[in-house]
Design a protein around this nucleic acid. Sequence first.
DNA 1: CCGGCGGCCTTTGTGCGCAATGGCCGTATT
DNA 2: AATACGGCCATTGCGCACAAAGGCCGCCGG
Lengths: 214, 214
Amino acid sequence: MSQKTTPQKDAYTMILEAIDVGTFRPGDRLVESDLADRLGMSRTPIREALQRLETQSLLSRDGRSLIVASLDHNQMAELYVVRTELEGLAARLAARHATAEEVRVLRDMVKEDHALVDKPAALSRANRRFHKQIHLASHNRFLVQQLDLVHRSMALMATTSLAAEGRGEKALEEHDAIVRAIEARDEAAAYAALKSHISVAFVTRLKLDSQNDS
Amino acid sequence: MSQKTTPQKDAYTMILEAIDVGTFRPGDRLVESDLADRLGMSRTPIREALQRLETQSLLSRDGRSLIVASLDHNQMAELYVVRTELEGLAARLAARHATAEEVRVLRDMVKEDHALVDKPAALSRANRRFHKQIHLASHNRFLVQQLDLVHRSMALMATTSLAAEGRGEKALEEHDAIVRAIEARDEAAAYAALKSHISVAFVTRLKLDSQNDS
DNA sequence: CCGGCGGCCTTTGTGCGCAATGGCCGTATT
DNA sequence: AATACGGCCATTGCGCACAAAGGCCGCCGG
């Protein structure tokens, strides 16, 4: 029942998802005519999508053609530095600006996500939604946009750090701490909690990567 | 000696500059065929450029067509919040990572810019270069990229805050303080100095705007 | 056998034209 | 006179085709 020939979303979204899901991996070459065939459209919309992705540096040029960008160790570290600061800022602003309903949603998310604690894939999606909700609760559109960019770049890193043994539960505890700080309108605590959450996630990822590379 | 018919840079750069310089102002409608004529190329490269600019939200859609995005008061405030944090981060990282040569360049810039103190246009360009140099001194490519985005969005605000009476000198003093903190490798001081610099710039801009609107 | 040179082929850059959509204006009716 | 309907036109979306450029492979010479 797969209708690969007429998927009918826009090219940009489809290519983005393909990178997200891992169909296209860092270093893969993206050839316009290939994609045009595969997505059942002409090269024109493909080109536009590719250029947009290039603008966000999800793709980079290798000579004349576009390849999926890859992050070396340094770039990962740099990305995490920026991410930490922006997520921290989002938490601080959320503590200040979130509506009661938004806080409620965050609280419910933490509760419900406990059911997913041993399903890394589902947990990863839930995790994204959780962080996205915090971004939105900051009520700062530019920040949301910047964080979207950051998260897109993170798709270039293969593994989810939630796959690590026991990471799921820890992460949920950290989420709980973040929500409590936001509920208490404690900006400094929210900032600190989110910063340390990201920091731990980074450490976990580094450990995972070093396992895989060996 | 203007050769408007064969300018020969890429469409993206030219449209960006036109927005920067104020040829296109927020709210202006950008029609593909118009631009194609004006820039002496066909619609295809124009389309690509426009979509890239849309991706960076310098353009937004009004119905079917693209207009130069405009920032309302709230969006300006939101932008400044993010900018403040990112510039502060850049300063902190610069204090940590800048090479002796990079610091030297910053110091020289402050010295030389004193000559421009009563030329707002030149000072504005110098100011951009100064901040750009700090971004680069952070040695964090993602941060540089994010700050580029922020600065591009700032092009949507008409006036430069350096046009305000006496602002030029104050700004240079602040620049001096920033450089001194970086020279001293004092991360906290650099962070604080840049944050307050941006904060003052924002206040100045708000005052200017309130004058203009009245 | 290795290195350099040349040509072919793949892939991108760009122009053009047609189809479709959405907005705007004019008209007609109440 | 105001509003609603309808048709026209401006403008975008997309496909196609041609030109140019760059890389790769094979061939020839040393």
